[in-house]
Amino acid sequence: MAEVQIRRYEDEDEEDVKDLFTLGMSEHVPSSCLHVLKQPHVQMLLACVFCALLASSKSFLLPILAVTLLLAAGRQGVNYVFSRYIQTSLSLDLKNIRQSYLEKPNSCFWVAESQGRVVGMVACLPAEKSKGCLELKRMSVKHFHRGQGIAKALCLTVSDFAREQGYPAVVLYTSIVQIAAQKLYEHVGYKKVREFVVPELIAKIMNFTLIEYSVAVKEHVMNLM
């Protein structure tokens, strides 16, 4: 945490924040592809295509080519899901961060700054699905600044804000492929509440699961002090 300052978002941070968000989300494409390949129905499909073409063509070249094309199509599908999510986020709450987080009650947006550069961020607002709770959102730390306690400090910042605003708990959502994020949240005291598959068709095919976490504010602040 040396030489890192956590402060409220300012308008001149906009491009840095959007770049940090885009890069952070794009990092999950490879792990999401591996997650898809681990699904039994995907493995069954690839095996059936390979065996069917091998039996009909009596050649290894055609089935290998077909499976390669299916894998490439799957990669494009995962890229599409993440690209659409990024673009949707940039056109919604991240389009006008000040309006989305700083001009609304019980909401805020912070950045972590090191040597004049934005290296991390986090936001919060009243949770829509968990009434009476605050929701932690947009947590991200640049790759080369991870492991320095920045994410933990950002979590504490949100918990302090929740306590000041009178919220008893903070909730957040992360995905099944964000293993490092899961470890972080559990390390700082968040408890897993539930897992659920995103309802969109392509997400169901990918078995793309979201995880809901929650932590009591008073207990969290004391544990992180």
Rank of each mutant, 00 (worst) to 15 (best):
T68L: 10
T68Q: 04
L69C: 12
L69T: 14
L69P: 10
L70M: 09
L70G: 13
L71F: 07
G74N: 04
G74E: 03
G74D: 05
G74T: 07
R75L: 12
R75S: 11
R75Y: 13
G77A: 14
G77H: 05
V78F: 00
V78P: 04
N79M: 05
N79A: 07
N79R: 15
N79Y: 09
Y80W: 10
V81I: 04
F82L: 07
F82D: 05
F82N: 12
S83C: 02
S83D: 12
S83L: 06
R84C: 15
Y85T: 15
Y85V: 08
Y85G: 12
Y85C: 12
I86M: 09
I86D: 02
I86C: 10
Q87R: 14
Q87S: 15
Q87A: 14
Q87L: 10
Q87V: 09
T88K: 08
T88A: 10
T88I: 13
T88P: 05
T88E: 15
S89P: 03
S89A: 13
L90A: 04
L90H: 05
S91R: 03
L92P: 15
L92H: 13
L92A: 15
L92G: 15
D93G: 06
D93K: 03
L94V: 07
K95Y: 13
K95W: 02
K95I: 01
N96C: 05
N96K: 04
I97E: 11
I97M: 07
I97S: 08
I97G: 09
R98E: 14
R98S: 11
R98L: 03
Q99H: 02
Q99G: 15
Q99Y: 13
S100D: 08
S100T: 09
Y101T: 08
L102M: 14
L102D: 11
E103Q: 07
K104S: 06
K104H: 03
P105G: 11
P105L: 00
N106H: 14
N106I: 03
N106T: 10
N106K: 13
N106V: 09
S107W: 00
S107P: 03
S107C: 02
C108T: 14
C108R: 09
C108D: 15
C108Y: 12
C108P: 14
F109C: 00
F109A: 01
V111I: 09
E113N: 05
E113L: 01
E113D: 13
E113K: 00
S114H: 00
S114M: 09
S114V: 14
S114I: 00
S114E: 14
G116W: 02
G116D: 12
G116P: 00
V118H: 09
V118G: 11
V118A: 10
V119G: 02
V119F: 06
M121Y: 07
M121N: 03
V122H: 06
V122W: 00
A123C: 08
A123I: 08
C124M: 09
L125N: 10
P126G: 05
A127V: 11
A127E: 11
E128K: 15
E128G: 12
K129G: 04
S130F: 11
K131G: 15
G132M: 01
G132S: 05
G132N: 06
G132F: 01
C133H: 07
C133N: 14
